[in-house]
Design a protein around this nucleic acid. Structure first.
Lengths: 231, 231
DNA sequence: TCGTACACTGTACGTCGTACGCTGTACTAT
DNA sequence: ATAGTACAGCGTACGACGTACAGTGTACGA
């Protein structure tokens, strides 16, 4: 008698696991992961706190589900381009998605089992590398290397206190430099000055490492790339 | 009247910021970061919960301090070897330290300001790269790339459910493969089989990407390495 | 002897995750 | 029509959390 009215208001249907997880992601995006509580989440869905437990076994399981939904947002490597283009696409996509959901990267170290979207993504990447001519173990190496770079970059990006190049100059001058006496940190001062002078934008940084890694991996293939050659 | 007895037992002196943070790290190492509460930490130190707030402004500040102490454990790049050896040393050290404190990497994305040990480390790395002959902006690129790799690797390593190569085979067979129907995940099955057959140890994986990155960065220097050449 | 500073603590408040048991509704079998 | 069963959701309660606030006793200089 109390529930029906709420359902109509919030979105027609009743609760569902998907709706719960989606709203949890929105909440975490807006308020940070610390602002996500079962009660607040339930409130945002127009429901009681305990109702959520019909769709999610525990908060931990909810977090797992959130992460897997984030993985779903990441583009898979396209199959009709050469391997470097495919990896570029999925890596850039991953970076963007992880930047959109800053909380996700910090949650990943605790949860140990991959989830279906994660597995699906991994399969697609491995397939791409194998078809590109990387031997089995080399494909594993490449996978580790690329993922490490993407996750590590996202981690560093998430801990930056600014979003754009505009803010960089301000932050460097107001926060960074005052902490850095030039006699004790000569090189960081030099760096900071150069970055500001060059109008440095950390958003451009990702490409450098990615291209370097792709180029260095390329000669480790032992066969021509099927996707690049054929269809 | 209650505190003194405990102090003698635990380590002679009274509380101190350093002792608080050290014990917090030990607790987080043993029980996971979720098991670290102000009450439990105080208990482990033989003190009341609120006593901690004389040394730490809030739990958040405690976490910041813990992370910075972790950074202190990481070897600085030695100054008397060539830049690749120096980076190898500090990167390996960072990997080990972050593996020893699994909780640290997951905390890093939330806390945005570097801390003194972090800054000191960054200065030393930048110095090493600059002296090796990397131009200012290129040194920044190299810094981002290397750190991304190290952090991302640590992140992936932390989310592995096993520690050694021995356990890998078991886990793959018991947990991984049952989730992976061969028709849906042919490449992951191929990989898993190859890894088990090769006696793959993820501890060896780190070197591959690191060496690849170091080798690819080397030609981007514009001057000879001072450390390698001189003294 | 007094005052004052310091190191530390007990209590209390609001919030958290969630165990437990209860509601009303929908549907199926009789 | 009636009873039975399953489902979806909720209210309450418990223990643990971070921490504000108002103390406590001790050490020490005047």
């Amino acid at each position: 008698m109390s529930a029906e009215g709420q359902h109509d208001v919030t979105s027609g249907a009743g609760l569902s696991r998907r709706r719960v997880v989606l709203e949890a992601i929105r909440l975490a995006d807006n308020e940070g992961v610390d602002g996500l509580s079962m009660r607040r989440l339930a409130g945002a869905l127009g429901a009681g706190a305990m109702s959520l437990y019909h769709y999610v076994k525990s908060k931990d399981e909810l977090l797992d589900a959130m992460i897997d939904l984030v993985f779903e947002e990441i583009d898979l490597p396209p199959e009709d381009v050469d391997w470097q283009a495919a990896m570029r696409r999925r890596s850039e996509s991953a970076r963007q998605v992880l930047a959109r959901h800053r909380w996700a990267i910090g949650l990943m170290d605790a949860r140990t089992s991959p989830g279906p979207a994660h597995l699906h993504h991994r399969e697609a990447v491995t397939a791409c590398l194998r078809r590109a001519g990387f031997p089995v173990l080399m494909a594993t190496h490449a996978n580790w290397l690329l993922d490490s770079y993407v996750y590590g970059f996202a981690l560093q990006e998430a801990s930056l206190p600014f979003d754009s190049a505009d803010q960089l100059a301000d932050i460097v001058e107001d926060v960074y430099l005052p902490q850095l006496p030039p006699d004790q940190f000569p090189y960081l001062n030099e760096s900071a000055a150069a970055l500001v002078a060059a109008g440095y934008d950390p958003a451009d940084e990702f490409g450098f490492g990615l291209e370097l890694i792709l180029a260095a991996l390329d000669p480790l293939r032992t066969r021509p790339d099927e996707a690049a050659a054929g269809r």
